[in-house]
Design a protein around this nucleic acid. Sequence first.
DNA 1: GAACTGTAGATTGTCAACAATACCCTATAT
DNA 2: ATATAGGGTATTGTTGACAATCTACAGTTC
Lengths: 228, 228
Amino acid sequence: MAAPEGLFALEGRPTAQLIADQLREQIVQGVFRPGEQINESVLASQLSTSRGPVREALQRLCQEGILVSRRNRGVFVLELAMEDIREIYAVRVAVESTAADALLDAGQEQVKDTSQALKAIISDMAKQVAVSDWKAIARLDMQFHTSFVAGAGNTRLIRIYKTLAAESRMCILNLAVAYPRIDVLVQEHQNLLDLLEAGHREELHKAITRHMESAVEDLTGTTEEGSP
Amino acid sequence: MAAPEGLFALEGRPTAQLIADQLREQIVQGVFRPGEQINESVLASQLSTSRGPVREALQRLCQEGILVSRRNRGVFVLELAMEDIREIYAVRVAVESTAADALLDAGQEQVKDTSQALKAIISDMAKQVAVSDWKAIARLDMQFHTSFVAGAGNTRLIRIYKTLAAESRMCILNLAVAYPRIDVLVQEHQNLLDLLEAGHREELHKAITRHMESAVEDLTGTTEEGSP
DNA sequence: GAACTGTAGATTGTCAACAATACCCTATAT
DNA sequence: ATATAGGGTATTGTTGACAATCTACAGTTC
């Protein structure tokens, strides 16, 4: 029952994983809005598959935290409150700081590889800023930080950060005005990269913390506490 | 939408979550050894249920990382290498340090509540050390650190740490001689508690780092490198 | 004897049907 | 009019059967 549709083939990799990845991407891109219900059956028919794999994928996303499941009611896209934003960014500081340490301890070679990847992302980001493509900017923003963490090579750190990145994109997408300080966005990331290459550990830590704190301010400042 | 304060969750996710919790507990207690395969069918019949819920539980544990799934082959208990130990404890340092900061920032009230819980755990730990009940010691060790993190109130941090605690227990259980420095075990945890109560942020960070580093030394020192 | 191929067994992956449950809407009584 | 009880409906939760796939073993050939 291969889908004649445009979505990729099974390709010997776990099906549920593929579905989960597609779903996650659609969620962080806003195809599904916060609070919206996701129906197993309709999703299964859309993907030309059965409810089994779809169910597994949904459960996976529930455990990641970007979906919430209510018993016998269904799964819904996570609704983010201000407290969630603070939590997410607090954990991001922890993860990225740890990644920074691990990266600097790993040696110049690894730093070099990582900074090359980061430089390319910053370059792309500058282009998208020029044309104000918000979705692309959000994607590249997360791609920068994900690559940064990935550079440390700690698989558990990477796994943790994957969820945080998804949640962050949901924050940015759903909480109205995403980047009020777009003029300094590229500059801030360039600063992080410079500090990494220079090996200034303490300064890098401080920069990461500031970067996240200002993000929290931007996000919480543009949002009224939405408690239903 | 105020939640009724009196009654707790009436089993929000009964079956799969229940099975997963049971499985995880058995895994960290060594009922299933590392590398051992877990059969869906036999587990289902043992639990008097179908393969569906069992499969969901297994997938959940796969995503947590204490099981690994090989396509069309089955799920196996995670085999920990020395690199894994270093990873786990590096992330634990990050999480606990962040929890410590959040706890100290949250105010004296929250610190008080947490330290009371920790004190009780240390007390129990001392008793179990006296009778050399290793499994109970390992459980209380993790309970201490889990309660510490839980005290910070960051749900994402707590969720992350749950997996780390399980993996740590697997390390301790599976890597032969668990606690070579049992005489200072209680003392070390008491030290962490004292620093928390005193509010010595920097000292607490250093103590957490030392605590984890010596744990890594103990674990990797008693293990022969089993890398293919 | 070694290497290759084909078959057998077992286990996971997938599917469609059945059952259980929570919510919504209506009817009824106070 | 409000509150309450009852049935209807939609959705998830569960089940057993079927299909796909991988490993291992045996048989055959050079």
